[in-house]
Design a protein around this nucleic acid. Sequence first.
DNA 1: ATTGAAACTCGTGATCT
DNA 2: AGATCACGAGTTTCAAT
Lengths: 148, 148
Amino acid sequence: MPEPMPDVDALDHRILGLLREDGRRTFSEMAAEIGLSVAAVKRRVDRLRETGVITGFTVQIDHAKLGWGIEAFTELRYQGTTPVDRIMRTATEIPEVQAVFTIAGDPDALIRIRARDLGHLQKIIDRLRRAGDVTGTKTLMVLASWTR
Amino acid sequence: MPEPMPDVDALDHRILGLLREDGRRTFSEMAAEIGLSVAAVKRRVDRLRETGVITGFTVQIDHAKLGWGIEAFTELRYQGTTPVDRIMRTATEIPEVQAVFTIAGDPDALIRIRARDLGHLQKIIDRLRRAGDVTGTKTLMVLASWTR
DNA sequence: ATTGAAACTCGTGATCT
DNA sequence: AGATCACGAGTTTCAAT
């Protein structure tokens, strides 16, 4: 079942672009920017939330400044019998796991990890390796990153 | 030179937690939640921005609903002589590249890609392979994902 | 769907403890 | 640091188009 695809016009895309740059932009600011009334902008944002295009708003944090300077991706290989939802759950229980991506092919999953230091990272990887039906891991340490 | 680490106390962490859940939460709402005055919450958020802990606010989007249903990670290998900033730039020029992570060891970089369909993904990967000093790629197709 | 106006809520800066 | 006050700015709803 493919996802329903709501109509999103050029104005909606401009609003989304503005909110990507600054998710706390005011409706008035956006209204002035794109030449619509405040109420119209609000209605569009409300509709984008209702249709699920906008799933939420969040704050962007420099984790290094909070003492979480280590970032890594770990590829996980599982036993052939392991169901996908089990793979998803493995990492959910480890708070340092930021995201889990199940993968078509090899490896079976890619997870994004944040740690305070290398010792901490090691402990997390050990815990993953001990967990259930993981047959192998390969960890990619992030040196630097850039996000659009 | 390690990053300067500003003092962030338990109250700041609670504020960050609230803003992670909903980046558009009002100061009054947060103030009521954690038992502080509105102005106090505002000053803390302002300070978190000034010290660089908060780098911004953004909207979270369901890209599949916008017709960008394909997500993939591609590992890139470069010639040994390629400088890191060149690696960073490779992908910057391709709009479908969402993020670039330079990696310690093998591969040299991991990039996150979004595409409309498999044909589109193929074109992006072809373009990466043709670009400059890339010696090899391995693409991991995302089946499903979960983010904390 | 968009607008404009009214009523309400919020953000912001000054001032004081 | 945090609280309180005051005012300008932003939000939300609704009738009208």
